[in-house]
């Protein structure tokens, strides 16, 4: 096993310079998934860039009409933020169900986004909220829609020299809904989870039912257009690609995805 190396930049500028010089560096923050991957030998990276000390990436505030959440905001900070509680209660609900208190203290929203797991707990919320991801590199900043951020299983449009610096969430109209279906009541990885917003338009994000988090645009369109729940469920089933794994079955995920859609519609 080759040795691990860790760089600890003192500023965002220094971090971006390091990354530009060596794009093989893996940016890390809370490390809640990195440690697991290293232990199991599934994380091939050996060189790491520790962002944890970068104050520029912390903080939750309002920017224009949008809520801006710094990439290093932990789940605990999100849960405790009055702004998030008021504007995106479904994100608070999702954050509460990530791991246990220790994980919530270390895990970050930016890490959840960059890690790109289809089982990332907050990702359906960002999909349903129509969030934007703020990326920065030495050559500048770009803000991209969360829809389309992921290109395939654990891959995104983020280039190796870019960092996720913030997540922007527009002001949401309508009722928000969230449910995680885990393997147990605490300390569980999701078998499936759904976030949804019911306003003049309907938006639905769903996780663990495909190679990436999925924005269920067709099911949402059926519901927005006054279609029946049966048609919406059929549309949803055509949009997801659930599989069998050690945690659940594709059949279960499909059935429960449809059930969750119905529950969301009934409860909002």
């Amino acid at each position: 096993m080759s040795a691990l190396t860790l760089e600890r930049p003192r500023s965002l500028k220094a971090a971006l310079a390091s990354l530009a010089a060596d794009p093989s560096l893996m940016p890390i923050a809370g490390c809640t998934d990195v440690y697991v991957g290293l232990h199991f030998g599934t994380t091939p990276e050996r060189r790491f860039l520790d962002l944890w000390g970068l104050k520029e990436l912390r903080g939750i505030g309002v920017d224009g009409d949008a809520l801006r959440i710094g990439a290093l905001s932990t789940y605990t900070e999100i849960i405790q933020s009055t702004l998030v509680q008021q504007r995106v209660p479904m994100l608070v609900a999702a954050s509460r169900e990530v791991g246990g208190a220790q994980i919530q203290n270390r895990g970050t929203l930016g890490g959840n986004v960059a890690n790109a797991s289809p089982a990332g707990d907050t990702l359906p919320v960002l999909a349903a909220a129509g969030a934007r991801i703020v990326l920065r590199s030495q050559s500048g900043t770009r803000t991209v829609p969360f829809d389309g951020f992921y290109t395939s299983y654990r891959n995104s449009i983020r280039t190796p020299d870019e960092l996720v610096v913030a997540i922007e969430i527009p002001r949401l109209q309508g009722r928000q809904w969230w449910r995680k279906v885990g393997t147990r009541r605490a300390q569980a990885i999701s078998k499936i989870m759904m976030a949804a917003v019911r306003g003049t338009d309907v938006r639905i994000g769903i996780g663990s039912v495909g190679p990436t988090v999925i924005t269920a645009t067709q099911a949402a369109a059926v519901l927005s257009g006054g279609g029946s729940i049966a048609d919406a469920k059929a549309a949803l089933l055509s949009e997801i690609r659930p599989i069998d794994d050690v945690r659940s079955t594709g059949e279960y995920r499909a059935t429960v995805a449809a059930n969750l859609l119905e529950q969301f519609w009934r409860e909002t």
Binding site: R184, Q187, R247
Partner: peptide, 23 residues
């Protein structure tokens, strides 16, 4: 215990699900 080809496929505390106090 999820057995795949004679091997426990979920040999992790994350995926072998014992009840927590909440369960």
């Amino acid at each position: 215990v999820v057995m795949k080809d004679g091997r426990m496929a979920n040999a992790q505390l994350t995926n072998y699900i014992i009840p927590t106090p909440l369960d």
